[in-house]
Simulated scan of single mutants.
Amino acid sequence: MSENYLYVHLETVTNMILSYGISMGDFVNSFKHVPEHLMLLSPVDPDEMIDPHTGFNVISGRENVLGYLLNPKIHGKKWIDYKHTLYLDEVTPLEVSELLYLGHAYTHLSSPFYYKLANRYVYLQVPNGNVKTYYRHLDDFYRVLSNAIVRCFEQHHFEQNFLFRRNTTNFVPLDQGTIQTLHQLLIDGVLFNFMAAKRDGGFFQVPLYQLRHRFSGGEAAWLADDDILLGHLRYNRETQHWNVTLQA
């Protein structure tokens, strides 16, 4: 189902992204540098490494971090990265309580970016199937979004269009201009409906919708009659260029 729909809602004050359909592979493949350390915000496992000052489970070493992130058997992943183990001893009791709240309530009390942790991300798998992520730098998110969009185009194209399987289309990452256009739309939330993606001449395109109802990843009806068609994200197969065409 995750290759059929992408949903992205951007909250610009704290760079929070509510999403559905973005895979952990999309996230990990966007890393310029794999985080060296993770603090887990999920319930503490006494059999795993625990930081004695904060009381949270921690994972150190890039190989171990990737092993955790990409392990499909671990559900409900909730974590925040941090830069230096040494600074964990300086985390205050108030900050520990904020982190506990972040993991429990899936939202922030104050800024989700901590000076002592120097974190770039907060990642929270929400029980309803959505994911909440906070990005210190939105450019990190747009690499993730580009990976997700390209993956969905490729999977839809190959699975749904048998006649074109032999003629592989290599989708390039989204360019900055297309990202900027999408940025404005994402502030109100956008559903990329790959169930309705199609080939139109030399273009592949997916319709973009603004929903009039609160989105939940587990709902049976993804679109309602009063949802608004915003336009289409289009890929030119010949020139390998992306663009967004908006409804008049």
Rank of each mutant, 00 (worst) to 15 (best):
I50Q: 03
D140G: 01
N130K: 08
F113T: 02
S97Y: 04
R199S: 11
V150M: 05
N4M: 03
T14M: 10
V126T: 09
G231E: 11
A221P: 06
M49V: 14
Q180G: 10
Y121F: 14
V190F: 05
K116P: 00
Y20F: 15
K116M: 08
K77C: 04
D175G: 15
T107P: 01
Q155V: 11
K73N: 13
W222K: 15
Y115A: 10
L185Y: 08
L66I: 13
K32R: 12
L246C: 11
L186P: 05
L174V: 03
R237G: 08
L191E: 07
R143E: 09
P173H: 08
Y20Q: 04
F158W: 09
S146I: 01
L174K: 06
T181L: 06
V244W: 03
D89K: 14
M39R: 00
S216K: 10
L6E: 04
L69W: 02
R212V: 09
Y134A: 05
M24P: 02
H37R: 07
T239F: 13
H53V: 14
I59T: 02
S110E: 03
L145F: 08
D225V: 13
Y209K: 08
L18G: 06
V172C: 14
F27S: 01
L186S: 06
Q210F: 11
K78E: 08
A197T: 08
D89H: 13
L186T: 05
M49T: 15
L66D: 10
S97T: 07
T169W: 05
L182H: 07
E11P: 03
D45C: 07
Y106M: 06
N57K: 04
R120A: 12
G218K: 04
L100D: 04
N71W: 09
Y134W: 13
P72T: 09
Y134G: 06
N243G: 10
Y68E: 09
N170F: 14
L211F: 11
F141R: 03
R151V: 02
N29I: 03
E36T: 10
S30D: 03
L246F: 14
I187H: 10
E95F: 00
E90D: 13
H232Y: 15
W222P: 07
R62V: 07
T133I: 06
T12V: 12
L18N: 12
V96G: 00
K77M: 05
H183N: 14
A220Q: 13
R166C: 13
H104T: 11
Y235V: 09
D226F: 13
L233T: 09
Y82K: 01
T54H: 04
G231D: 10
V122K: 00
L38V: 06
P35F: 00
L191N: 07
V122P: 00
V244F: 05
Y142N: 01
V28S: 02
I187V: 15
I59Q: 01
Y20V: 02
L163T: 12
E48S: 06
A197C: 11
H53K: 14
M195F: 11
F204A: 11
